[in-house]
Simulated scan of single mutants.
Amino acid sequence: MISFSCRLSRSRFVLEADFAYPGGCTALFGPSGSGKTTIARLIAGIERPDRGRIVVADHVVVDTEAGLWEPAHRRRVGLVFQDGQLLPHLTVRQNLAYGRYFAPRGTGRVVFDEVVDLLGIGHLLAARPLTLSGGERQRVAIGRALLAAPRILVMDEPLASLDAERKHEILPFIERLRDDLGLPIVYVSHAVEEVARLATQVVRLAGGRVVAKGTPVEVFASQVADEAPDRPETVSFLSGRVIREMPEFAISVIAHPAGEIVIPALMGRARGTVRVAVQGANVTLATERPSHLSVRTVLEGRIASVTAGAGPAGVVTVDLEGGDRLAAHVTRHAISDLGLVAGKQVFALVKAVAIDEHGLGRFDGRTASKEQE
């Protein structure tokens, strides 16, 4: 359980935000300067709010009305930063042992070998940080934080300094923390693909305020209405279960109530329920069910809204069978010609190669059930 309600005023920035979630991975999402890192620092005890209350794992760490402010070293918040901040003169084993030094007595010691196995760093124990790749350093930093027996893990843009290959290397390990350990995570990021893959809930920030909160599907569906109609960056998230692998064609097939979704082959990288990211510019709409097409993904739904600006394109949001919402960028001429209005039945066509493979992520059944209600 994490509950946050704080105000912090600076000369050129004011943070005033509140949210509460029972567990899982809570993503703080938004552009630079929106307040994500400030919230992380307040949770960790690096900064003090002007007023507010913070509860971490059912333990009150800040309550300004009651005059309570627990110092950082007593909060048991595991911090992971962009660069890992490992001690360069120590080996990996010694860096991990340094984390154990901060584990409070009587809390139950985290088993060293289990953490090493979880993060796949056993072969690195004798190495020094300067010889490690960026992804390896981040895994060691996570291990050090875990061995301090934290109540919660706060990860501040932990993948921001890594290239795409290193990001894909470390994402599965963060998923394991979320799913296997059940450790609450606050994950700071401005990367949609990371949030789509990891988050069970999202707090979207702008200018120090919460502008949306809920599941990734709910938050990014609400973002559609905020996007300028002529911008192609709108992303939708669909969730379903992998039902077929077709390695001979390098594709996987996901079952969705609106129709089957064909994606680039997962090659065993995700099991069970997955979330798929789809760019609005890569969605085509038809008013009748098409046939004899090369496009394999055809999803049925009804138009929820049509938003058009002064430019040539507009955004058509479609409520799909099963509850997910899909955004499509459509020319204003097509909107008029096809009579695209709220309530009209349509069929959304998405090419497999147009689906953002990096936005694929596994999430647990409890999250899946909640999102599909």
Rank of each mutant, 00 (worst) to 15 (best):
M1L: 14
R10T: 11
R12F: 12
A17E: 00
D18H: 14
F19C: 11
P22F: 06
G23L: 03
T26F: 02
S32V: 10
G33S: 06
K36F: 03
K36A: 02
T38F: 04
I46L: 13
R48Q: 11
P49E: 04
G52Y: 04
I54V: 06
V60D: 06
T64P: 05
E65N: 10
E65D: 14
E70G: 07
P71F: 05
H73K: 12
G78A: 09
L86Y: 07
L87F: 15
L90C: 05
G99Q: 04
Y101H: 14
R109A: 15
R109C: 12
V111F: 09
V116L: 08
L118G: 09
I121V: 12
G122H: 08
H123V: 07
L125C: 01
A127M: 11
R128A: 10
L130Y: 14
I142N: 01
A145D: 02
A149P: 02
P150R: 00
M155W: 00
D156M: 06
R166S: 13
E169P: 04
L171H: 08
I174T: 03
L177Y: 00
D179R: 09
D180E: 15
G182Q: 05
V188T: 03
V188I: 09
S189H: 11
A191W: 05
E193Y: 08
E194T: 09
A196N: 04
R197Y: 02
R197Q: 01
V202R: 07
V203G: 08
A206E: 15
V211R: 10
A221D: 08
V224H: 13
P232H: 06
E233H: 13
L238Q: 07
R244G: 05
M246F: 11
E248Q: 12
A250G: 11
A250H: 09
S252P: 04
P257M: 06
P257D: 08
I263C: 01
A265F: 07
A265D: 13
R271N: 13
T273S: 12
V274N: 04
A277W: 01
L285I: 10
R289F: 10
S291H: 12
S291W: 10
S291L: 13
V295P: 07
R296E: 13
R302T: 15
R302N: 12
I303F: 00
A304I: 11
T307W: 11
A310R: 13
G311I: 10
P312V: 13
T317W: 05
D324R: 03
L326S: 03
R332T: 10
R332P: 03
A334Y: 04
A334S: 15
D337K: 13
L338M: 12
G339T: 07
V341E: 14
A342Q: 09
V346P: 01
A348K: 00
V350Q: 01
K351Y: 05
A352G: 00
D356A: 10
R362E: 11
E373I: 13
